[in-house]
Design a protein around this nucleic acid. Sequence first.
DNA 1: GAACTATTCACCACTTTTCCCCACTACTCC
DNA 2: GGAGTAGTGGGGAAAAGTGGTGAATAGTTC
Lengths: 145, 145
Amino acid sequence: MFRGQFKYSVDSKGRISIPAKLRRHVAPDANETFIMTKGTATCIDIYPLDQWQHIEEKLLKLNPFNPADAKFIRMISQFASEDTMDSQARILIPQPLIEYAKIEKEVLILGALKKIEVWNPKIYEEYINQTGESYEQIAAKVMTE
Amino acid sequence: MFRGQFKYSVDSKGRISIPAKLRRHVAPDANETFIMTKGTATCIDIYPLDQWQHIEEKLLKLNPFNPADAKFIRMISQFASEDTMDSQARILIPQPLIEYAKIEKEVLILGALKKIEVWNPKIYEEYINQTGESYEQIAAKVMTE
DNA sequence: GAACTATTCACCACTTTTCCCCACTACTCC
DNA sequence: GGAGTAGTGGGGAAAAGTGGTGAATAGTTC
């Protein structure tokens, strides 16, 4: 499980290092390979290959001849990109994702259980400060039982 | 499984390169051969031969004496065309499909799990912007379990 | 049936991008 | 304090994408 936050930079080629502390939690099955895709918020989701395969299994159960299902398959795979870490433990983020998540030089990397999220720090701050339920309120609702 | 998006061009002869990242996911069984046909949206569907064979099995189970089945069989077969990649990993798109998908110089190639889709970028944009459920909404619905 | 024309298809060549590897600095942990 | 690990940057070789030329095939006309 991935945990923690890290402030890293994206280099001129669009590469990001996977923090060493997160790297230790990547299963060997992942083969040092990650799938990046559009997050459901304004961020990039990064899944180790083994985790992504669980998502793909769900996608494969959809019916590609059903228009709504097909649209979702397109939307999610359009931004999905595979890459293997280089010898310096970096992966290359595709341009479309950088644009989508409004990534600039600095990024905030978050460990989020089964995936890793990459944010523009400013955007993350705005997201957290959005008026809405507080941490306590959400916790109370989500963590019942 | 095919994933990702690629902006490529069609040359004057109607040829399209299969992106290298997609090529890596084509099974050797496909023998570098693809079947192109009309997509269910305004696009061209490209199946590696081995995947197409699964589609054909399903078509064979339809009842050719049922008018709806028969019509679908005609429509999909009418546009189905086979081609093998040349030494530069390109395939030739038949004119009728180019016209159907309104393809011009620029194309958007999408990896869509078991098939590859080819779109006119403008048409794809219109399609995605069609009012409908958002990415977040669909994701929440489809990926629950 | 032969010759000419038109279209198709395989191969060659060039340019750009990608990706792999090497190097440097800073920080951490013995 | 020193060794090792982590993060950042860049250069060069290899591959990928695009365009075009020429041979082969097929089709048509005389």
